[in-house]
Amino acid sequence: MSIKLIKDHPILDFGHEEKKMVTFTFDNKEMKGFEDDPIAAALHANGIQVYRITPKTERPRGFFCAIGKCSSCFMIVDGVPNVRTCVTPLKAGMKVETQKGRGVLKSEEGEER
């Protein structure tokens, strides 16, 4: 899939050419994004909009405030749940997953909840 970037802008120069493109996975699918862009932005550029499924009503949630305040974009990143993907920088090889429900801390794995 192609990455949806703004090409010609009358005022801004995003410097996309100089940025470093890295590979990461989303639910085990390989994707590309710019290193150190927020994970949520990189996913959006790849056409991914559903980032988690809420615990009780199982509703899809995605990007919303982009300033780390609203918890809509929580995902599992490298095994860590509830990561605010709008303010977490993308790194090469990151494993990003849709979060279903509340998320489980590594230290709690196997415990009864």
Partner: peptide, 23 residues
């Protein structure tokens, strides 16, 4: 109103003006 695709104005600006991504 919680559906992905409903975004705050600040978030739209972040995507397009800071990162150059089509919102």
């Amino acid at each position: 109103n919680d559906m992905p695709g409903v975004y705050g104005a600040g978030a739209i600006q972040t995507l397009m003006n800071v990162y150059g991504i089509v919102p």
